[in-house]
């Protein structure tokens, strides 16, 4: 008799990613995607690096979709360890055999062996899937060491033990796309040189005005002229450097989407629109008593920017 095993804990689901109806592929996005595809097709791992709100993850997804392979997504985390990437011993396989070949002799055999479960990196290496490793610098560098031989020698080295194999030849169609934010200071680690040296890194910055306006308009459903007002307000505020957290394209989309849904006019005379701008953008400066004067100045600046772009 063999006991029924629980359903395998291996990741049996892959992502089928595709662009949403609101995804905008401007010439800038297309150029970046084509650059990345050239490196990936040559077998190199890609790394999109840039501050928050520059579209790293979306671009990584877009490029992964263009590879037309199943995708596995991992998100870097302080708690991530090597076994979270490659897999580990997870539970036991218990086996009991009752042998009654001779009716008068009852023979029992029992044994329990540890059960190995592949994790996402191992599955992707075996099957030739695309691995998107988002914010990989949030994982401790030692957790990512296993990637070194995968990316250079094309071999995944597994911890020896039990019955599983010790080495896996990486599938020729396996590709990795990394993203990271070098400006983030909370909960991130520096990437080790050995790993960075194996990656082709493209630095992303905030998109040009035309691209931002198109993205804001598409994502919010706002008219292009009104979306331009919103994008310009956020871009000018970003250029003013009067904040603790950089206002990004997400802030523009937030303001535009709420305004479009609620029917606010993106103009100084519509106090509801002004309030949305203040809600979204004022929070970019830390709220503390010491900052009171600075926040007052920031509010004045914001109002003047809103007036200059939408006071007409």
């Amino acid at each position: 008799m063999t006991t029924a095993l629980p359903r395998s804990a291996e990741p049996r689901t892959v992502l089928a990613i595709r662009p949403s109806a609101t995804f905008v592929e401007t010439s800038a996005v297309q150029a970046l995607a084509e650059r990345a595809m050239a490196y990936l097709q040559a077998g190199y791992p890609m790394h999109f690096r840039g501050p928050a709100g520059t579209g790293k993850t979306t671009l990584a997804m877009h490029v992964a979709a263009r590879l037309e392979r199943p995708v596995m997504l991992m998100v870097g985390d302080e708690e991530l360890s090597t076994s979270d990437l490659v897999g580990g011993q997870n539970g036991y396989r218990y086996r009991r055999v009752e042998d009654r070949f001779i009716h008068s002799v009852l023979k029992y055999e029992e044994d329990a062996v540890q059960r190995w479960v592949d994790n996402r990196l191992t599955v992707a290496c075996r099957q030739g899937f695309t691995l998107v490793y988002d914010e990989f610098t949030r994982s401790r560098p030692e957790a990512n060491n296993v990637l070194l031989t995968v990316l250079e020698e094309g071999v995944l080295v597994l911890p020896r033990g039990g019955q599983q194999e010790s080495y896996i030849k990486v599938h020729p169609e396996f590709r990795v796309i990394f993203t990271s934010n070098p400006q983030e200071y909370a909960g991130v680690h520096a990437a080790q040189d050995a790993l960075s040296d194996r990656l082709v890194t493209i630095d992303l910055d905030y998109y040009d005005r035309a691209t931002e306006i198109e993205i804001v308009a598409t994502q919010s459903g706002m008219a292009v002229e009104q979306a331009a007002n919103v994008a310009d307000i956020v871009r000018d505020f970003r250029d003013a450097q009067c904040y603790d957290q950089t206002p990004t394209l997400r802030a523009s989309i937030m303001i535009a989407r709420v305004s479009a849904q609620q029917g606010y006019t993106p103009a100084r005379h519509d106090t509801r629109f002004v309030q949305v701008c203040l809600d979204v953008l004022e929070s970019k400066t830390a709220a503390s008593s010491a900052n009171r004067e600075r926040r007052a100045q920031q509010r004045e600046l914001l109002l003047s920017i809103i007036t200059s772009h939408s006071g007409r």
Binding site: R12, V14, L15, I17, P19, S20
Partner: peptide, 13 residues
């Protein structure tokens, strides 16, 4: 099942 015996989860970006 899809992708040669794998379950798929559709994700739009």
């Amino acid at each position: 099942l899809d992708a040669a015996g794998w379950g798929t989860f559709a994700l739009e970006y």
